[in-house]
């Protein structure tokens, strides 16, 4: 995964609280292999009518080339399905700005190069007002935890470990494999101290 420090693109407001993972991608699409792309399933049931046609009044359907979303509270709450992040990323979204995020969603986002930027609620409302329903050019700077949308600038909160990971595009498995010795030592110690932690073999 490629890392990134700055991002420029069009931001759009999606002023809805509690956009959960079941809305980001309904469960029925999750058996598709990733290689087929998940972008068309993003917010599927909000965006499309019963005949699969895009609804004209949904903000995301009216504008192309959006890469930053300004959303409401508790974005990505719910299930651990990483497919919710795949749907965003495959639809071209690079950052979501919201007052709060579901914990597992935020973790998954980082693992796929998507920024979950936490901005205080008042500022988010201000940004949403500024955006109304037309996209505005925005920029994000990870090195300074700062974003600019139109003429509004805001700082965002991001776990320091996550920030470094996003910038470097690090993959955890590579990172962890440097610690194989420590892991093995931990396992052996645990096996001595707590043999009960290993499953009894019934058969």
């Amino acid at each position: 995964m490629a890392g990134w420090s700055t991002q420029k693109g069009h931001a759009l407001a999606l002023a809805i609280d509690n956009i959960d993972t079941d809305q980001l991608i309904p469960a029925r699409f999750m058996s598709v292999p990733r290689s087929e792309g998940y972008g068309r399933y993003l917010l599927h049931d909000m965006r499309r009518d019963d005949d699969e046609q895009l609804k004209a009044d949904f903000p995301l359907n009216r504008h192309e080339g959006i890469s930053i979303l300004v959303a409401g509270h508790n974005f990505g709450s719910g299930s651990s399905r990483e497919a919710a992040v795949y749907a965003l990323v495959d639809a071209g979204i690079r950052a979501v700005i919201a007052p709060s995020f579901g914990d597992i969603f935020a973790n998954n986002a980082i693992n796929n190069g998507l920024l979950p930027a936490r901005v205080d609620a008042e500022k988010v409302t201000q940004l949403q007002h500024a955006l109304k329903d037309a996209p505005v050019l925005a920029s994000i700077d990870l090195t300074e935890n700062r974003l600019t949308i139109g003429d509004i600038t805001a700082t965002f909160e991001l776990d320091e470990g996550w920030r470094v990971k996003l910038i470097n595009g690090w993959d955890d498995i590579d990172l962890t494999q440097q610690h194989t010795q420590a892991i093995n030592a931990h396992r052996d110690n645990r096996n001595r101290a707590a043999p009960w932690a290993w499953p009894n073999k019934p058969d």
Partner: peptide, 20 residues
């Protein structure tokens, strides 16, 4: 605790998980 697919792959490969 629940984890996403990238973390599941990580646990499968290393039997460990990064967590704050």
């Amino acid at each position: 605790f629940g984890i996403g697919a990238t973390e599941v792959a990580h646990v499968l490969a290393t039997q460990t998980v990064w967590q704050r």
